[in-house]
Write a protein that binds this DNA or RNA. Structure first.
Lengths: 308, 308
DNA sequence: TAAGGTTACGGCGATCGTAACGATC
DNA sequence: GATCGTTACGATCGCCGTAACCTTA
């Protein structure tokens, strides 16, 4: 058993159990990986993969159990590298942030700006994805940190931190009837609605809040992206239901924002990362920066509420 | 980085950072390990060990962090081997049981007998040690399962299972005054006592029970071993305070046993093993056997109480 | 001076790449 | 026949062992 065999098994999973692709990914010829796999299997004494003819079709029960250990090894190996690099220069490295459009555009700019100033040597990669994918990105080691709003399932492998709470808001053109007057569930539900796609940015909160009242929203447009929603609100298609922090005081002057905290329960945005994943110092500081920014935004939200 | 380097670092720890000894343990010449260590350190970019001259004196901060990952890798590697062996033949293998003399002699015979019948191909190694050492044996991978009575510290790395509860008993020669009449804390404390060494078999329970009453026992002999205690009780040195199940109805006919459950709180014997340690099927069954035997012994204890 | 660690160098074996072959869709 | 995997064989590179050297109790 050796580490390249471990790596091979990992790569095989990533490539859908395709030896040729795995070989390519590992920069060796295909025959090499074929042999290594055989060697490993014969060392263990039984096959790790089910085969139809010569093709690998699935993991054997043994394979599944072994894979769990394999990924523990791969993780620890990666951690060693990261820890060492961190000791060499804790201002140099990369951080992969998995998040949604809304967070990336309306929440992250401030903390990322501050982070950049402290760690100019760290490359920041933003991975935009749907909320369900965010957690997968962590497990697949595509991302180090995920920032997500929809409920993080009670995943034993993850550490989650509270980042900030926020409410939804309605945005309408200035002449729109909803620009003035009290807003109730009924009144809101009487307009055509533009909001987030299922699974995005607290959509489930909106859904359940109205369902509880026996109402159904007439969602005529759903997008993953606040800006898309605003665009169509400006065209007069209806009422935009967006995250409160996605209203920009300056850029969105032409729209009227109405707080909906009395209609839709608050959403909670969390930070998540893998428990066994070693985060370099700068990543830990990045998370602190996020939490700090979260607290500040909470204070601002408080002010907003008073103002409205 | 490769697995033999991982192994080397482990071995170095075991040998007290002695390259020569590590080389011997790994069946390679000393120059080989010297080179491998250098290669690994230079790959990481900074040293893992503090050095005085050429000798390794200590781990660097980096080294300490890396070591934690190293042992995760070593553990996972071991697990892979065990899992594979388990699939090949789940009736073959070894189990290392760390426990104390009292458990080994008075509790384990029944479950081990039954286990042997089901798994004749499994070699059983009993490691006798003091209770503090038992847990260490798990961490050092000298033992797979520990059976211990003294409180298992809340060790995050361990899984513990309740095995059985028991009480202490007093044993005296037949003519001894304590062979008859009520037994109180005061009366018991008026005799010279023979019992377990500190840290063994519920000694702490005895200690605290009498301390609470403002009494101090006159322990004239302390041993790790119930049989030693009995031997000196027979010689008339005093009253033996032993674990209830360590009284043998037949072999100890010449001694009178007196239940002390009203004087000394019950002790709890637990089974412990490492969380990340894969236990082969037969080990899991062995643990079940222990728990079963524990429940039976509890029933017996119940009968004993009625009888006395 | 003994014990522990490093450096230099030659030899051996594990693993790779090339290439030809086999199987499956 | 295109894709995917296996087998055979020669070449290479990594790693070990021998041995001489260095350094500190």
């Amino acid at each position: 058993m050796n580490l390249s065999q471990i790596e091979l098994l990992q790569t095989l999973q990533e490539t859908g159990l395709n030896l040729s692709k795995a070989a390519e990914k590992m920069h060796v010829v295909q025959s090499a990986v074929s042999r290594q796999l055989q060697l490993f299997e014969s060392e263990l004494g039984s096959p790790l993969f089910e085969r139809r003819g010569k093709k690998l079709t699935d993991l054997t029960p043994l394979g599944k159990r072994v894979m769990a250990e394999i990924s523990a090894i791969a993780q620890a190996k990666q951690n060693i590298k990261t820890i060492a690099a961190d000791f060499l220069d804790s201002n140099q490295g990369t951080i992969h942030i998995a998040t949604t459009h809304t967070q990336a555009k309306y929440f992250l700019p401030v903390p990322i700006q501050r982070f950049r100033e402290k760690y100019p040597g760290v490359r920041i990669y933003m991975l935009q994805a749907s909320p369900e994918q965010l957690i997968d990105q962590l497990h697949n080691h595509k991302a180090d940190v995920a920032i997500c709003t929809e409920k993080v399932t009670d995943d034993e492998m993850l550490i989650t931190k509270h980042c900030y709470e926020w409410h939804h808001a309605a945005v309408v053109p200035q002449q729109h009837p909803l620009a003035t007057g009290e807003i109730s569930h009924d009144r809101l539900a009487s307009f055509p609605i533009l909001t987030y796609s299922f699974g995005y940015t607290g959509r489930s909160m909106i859904e359940s809040a109205f369902k509880e009242k026996g109402l159904e929203l007439d969602v005529i447009l759903a997008a993953a992206d606040t800006d898309v929603i605003k665009t169509y609100v400006r065209l007069g298609l209806g009422v935009g239901l967006i995250a409160g922090m996605a209203y920009d005081q300056i850029a969105d002057q032409d729209l009227v924002v109405r707080d909906l905290s009395h209609l839709i329960p608050r959403s909670i945005t969390k930070i998540a990362y893998l428990k066994q994943h070693y985060l370099p110092l700068y990543s830990q500081h990045f998370i602190e920066e996020l939490i700090l920014a979260g607290q500040e935004s909470l204070e601002n939200t408080g002010k907003n509420h008073k103002r409205q």
